[in-house]
């Protein structure tokens, strides 16, 4: 078992207000090699859970074991086995070139020189970091920086990768690149993946299993297909036609591909431009609750 929580609870005391229960008696079990999407609205308790999994926060009650370790008592040992990427928070050194950050992280993790070089070269190739390795981190574009962040978190070949909003703010191409890399990385090393996201595309392309959390409680635990069935999540193909009108064509991503829908649309009218709207995570979560009631 790579993640195991038992009645995990965390409360925050607030001045002059009732205490906030961010995580409420949560039971989660994740086997090695799984890819799990951890979703929920803002403030649902995702980040708090991750912080307890990695030993940053102390649980109010309940227990948690990550990679078979106690995150509080064995934080340093755990840090060698887990890689964490925060989409909003950098762990690189702002003023140093990316390559230097890798060298320092290698030293922090006590990686041997050959080990470090081999792993770094692998990551540089897979994530296409070569062109900006000597550029200071602060000068990187967001897409470049996120790739560098991912590489930094994976440098010590962790068993478990936790990604908190990894694709936030990235353009379509950068998102795709990052997802492809994570799929490949997992295939090569059998790494367990836990990610939080607001992007349905991330979940669809990366996760076999989805956990939905609301107000600190587990609202759904199961396959992605099951989630889509439950909520009937539909994508919408938006096409701008030659006559200047805009059409919205909803379709079920499980049954038909976007290309088929587009081909059928093109048969009827000339398509000038198109975009695809993904179902919104908040919307999915909302539907889960209404389905459960």
């Amino acid at each position: 078992m790579i993640i195991e929580t038992d009645q995990l609870t965390r409360e925050f005391k607030r001045r002059g207000k009732p205490k906030l229960v961010a995580v409420d008696h949560l039971d989660i079990r994740v086997e090695p090699g799984e890819t799990v999407g951890y979703i929920g609205a803002n403030g649902a308790g995702k980040s708090t859970t991750i912080k307890m999994l990695t030993g940053i926060l102390v649980p109010t009650s309940g227990s948690v074991r990550t990679c078979g370790l106690d995150p509080l008592k064995q934080r340093r040992e755990l840090a060698r086995r887990v890689g964490v990427v925060f989409g909003q928070r950098s762990q690189l050194w702002w003023d140093l070139p990316t390559a230097e950050s890798f060298t320092i992280l290698g030293a922090i993790h006590h990686l041997g020189r050959t080990e470090l070089t081999a792993r770094r070269d692998e990551l540089v190739e897979q994530l296409e970091l070569g062109e900006f390795l000597s550029t200071p981190v602060r000068q990187l574009s967001l897409g470049q920086r996120m790739r560098a962040e991912v590489a930094a978190a994976l440098l010590h070949s962790p068993q478990l990768i936790i990604l908190d909003e990894p694709t936030i703010g990235l353009d379509v191409l950068s998102k795709q690149r990052l997802r492809d890399f994570l799929v490949a990385e997992r295939r090569r090393h059998g790494t367990t993946l836990l990610l939080t996201t607001h992007d349905m595309g991330d979940i669809e392309r990366l996760c076999e299993r989805v956990l939905v959390v609301d107000h600190g409680r587990l609202a759904y635990d199961g396959s992605l297909a099951g989630l889509s069935r439950t909520v009937g999540a539909q994508r919408v193909l938006v096409v701008d036609l030659a006559d200047g009108t805009r059409q919205r064509i909803p379709f079920d991503a499980e049954k038909v591909t976007a290309a088929t829908v587009l081909a059928q649309a093109s048969e009827r009218a000339e398509v000038r431009d198109l975009s695809i709207e993904e179902p919104d995570i908040e919307d999915v979560v909302r539907r889960i609750y209404s389905a459960a009631r």
Binding site: K51, T54, G55, I56, R75, R76, E77, A79, R80, V82, V84, F86, R89, S90, Q91, L105, I108, H109, H110
Partner: peptide
């Protein structure tokens, strides 16, 4: 800034 989290994630005191 919340940057302290990053320190927690490294295997050093």
């Amino acid at each position: 800034q919340g940057t302290l989290d990053v320190f927690y994630l490294r295997p050093q005191p």
